[in-house]
Design a protein around this nucleic acid. Sequence first.
DNA 1: AAGACGGGGTA
DNA 2: TACCCAGTCTT
Length: 351
Amino acid sequence: MDKSKFSAILLHWHQHENTRVMPWKGIKDPYKIWLSEVILQQTRVDQGWKYYESFIEKYPDILHLANAEDKEVFKLWEGLGYYNRCKNLLHTARFIAENNNGKFPADYDEILALKGVGPYTAAAIASFAFRLPYAVVDGNVFRVLARVFGNSTPVDATEGKALFTSLAQELLDKKNPGLYNQAIMDFGATVCKPALPLCSNCVLQKQCTAFNTGTVNHLPVKEKVLKKKTRWFSFFVFRHNNKTLISKRTGNDIWQNLHEFYLVETDEKPVWSTETVLDVLSSQLNIKKAEVKDISPLISQQLTHQTIKAVFVRVILPEIPASLKKLDWLKDAEIEKLAFPRIINQYLSQP
DNA sequence: AAGACGGGGTA
DNA sequence: TACCCAGTCTT
């Protein structure tokens, strides 16, 4: 592949054949670019689209976001996953509001230093909003470059990341960095797709090493294997006087900053009956008076790296025991304002 | 360098 | 089910 022709072919394709439309495409407002890029980290465009629109509607500029309450912003992020993105989003909005008078930094290194902004997002903001010559390297770029240049260096290791970043930077059209970055990502997403790429109709077919050697389906190469585990959760839905016990998740675990019911995690599948539940309540929480309303069937949720299997046990407490007094007991109207993991919302939305 | 972090689409 | 998605942060 002739490197000097690569960007020209891509830009030509972008101008004449690329019909991909997105609400943030072509805009220059760094706040909106930043927001869209954070939402799209490890997230499909279709999935992030609605979230972007509701964020822009509610927080049209960075000061609106900076002044929002955590609870409200997390509720808007609910369901999108990778919730630390939301935490960092708020942190950065407030940082820019306080330290830079709400003005987004226009320098690559300053942008990269922001929390939640890595090399990809910094290059995207720098090129789209400020026309700076930084090449984006995301999953699309890894795939397109690995195939076109027939490079089987693993993209998920340090060497491969450096190699493809350097190659991307070399190929970047320095006069149109934003346009070029947009082009290669759209190309990767719509033509040079992970599965069933549209090679027969590809403008790079003649120059593509992978196509010419029949290795399209073997590139890019990844070497890391995902380890999966299964976890067993028992959520106790404690009710007392129309209030429910709700806690906020903290610590180094999934769903940080989201809310949940009183959780007991076990190493094996829990086998609950009214009797065993009452035993556990008595021995662990010193609850002597309780009515076990019902025990849900096992509900399963597949995450990327773990399978969650959860049971929900509804318990009516005639009085709040000392062991649970300091926790938050909330009315339904308050609960509706909080963000919950999908598996809990799934349970709550059941008839 | 390796692991952790969600939820959904596709084959 | 396995893999991937406009990646980043922590250990």
